[in-house]
Amino acid sequence: MATVTTSAGPARAPRRSRTFGGGGPLVYGLAAVVVALTLGPVLYGALGGFRTNEQLARDPAGLPDPWVFSNYQGVLTNDAFWRYAVNSTVVAVVTTVVAVLFGVMAAYPLARYQFRLREPLFLVFVLGLLFPAAVAIIPLFILVTRDLGLGNTWWGVALPQAAFALPMTVVILRPFLMAIPRELEEAALIDGASRVGVFWRIALPLSAPGMITVGVLAFVASWNAYLLPLLLLRDEMRTLPLGVADYSTEHSADTAGVLAFTTIAMIPALVLFLALQKRIVSGLQGAVKG
């Protein structure tokens, strides 16, 4: 609980007193190596998209010379790409909304109510972390396609994904809800608000930082998901990861086109994650130590 509040401001760290000062050339050298290894493959993809296949074949590691924009243009004017992007977006948004809403609702009584089954109930969610989606994937495929008739639909992918995101959501959100000062809720109750009203008007808004953390995690997990969409979605309904994988096998000769396609496909998750990086770090910290 305490960690959530202390970790909320990593920005505080740089203003420390000068202990064990900066780095010599060795430290910067090592950092440069780490950066090169980390960014190398991503930059290769991004820059490769600006080259022609002929350039790529001549010198795989070279820079674009001249820069060509036709690969990216080709992807952005490709109807299939936009269809995949829409599918990915809708599935990710539905997954996120369901996981966060149901998750915060479940976490609330686990944080605030006193009842006998509270800890066992929490344990159910903790255990849920141990159920890898892979274990249930084949029956899940049968359930969604045959029993529910949701095969090849947005809901058919989003609902199972939300269900598998719920354990993590609840485990991260509970400490956030516990950290909300009890006095606020008690005061509202005295003033005649119902418990549900307290949840809606006080607990929900005040746990927004935690909800953003789990929301981004759920969104990015859905955006990047492959296994479940692979089994459930076909043709027009495919999401971007499926599109990327299929495109790269169908157009294996067009390396530059594949690289442009992959680069554009990774941008949304990257932007979202980097924009909210601090929030997510503090949320994860709270879950790890909380």
Binding site: P41, N224, P241, A245, T262, M266
Partner: peptide, 15 residues
Amino acid sequence: VFVPYVVAEVIAGVV
């Protein structure tokens, strides 16, 4: 340092 973690496994795989 955190960038590769955000990239989908599929995309990392293709690159």
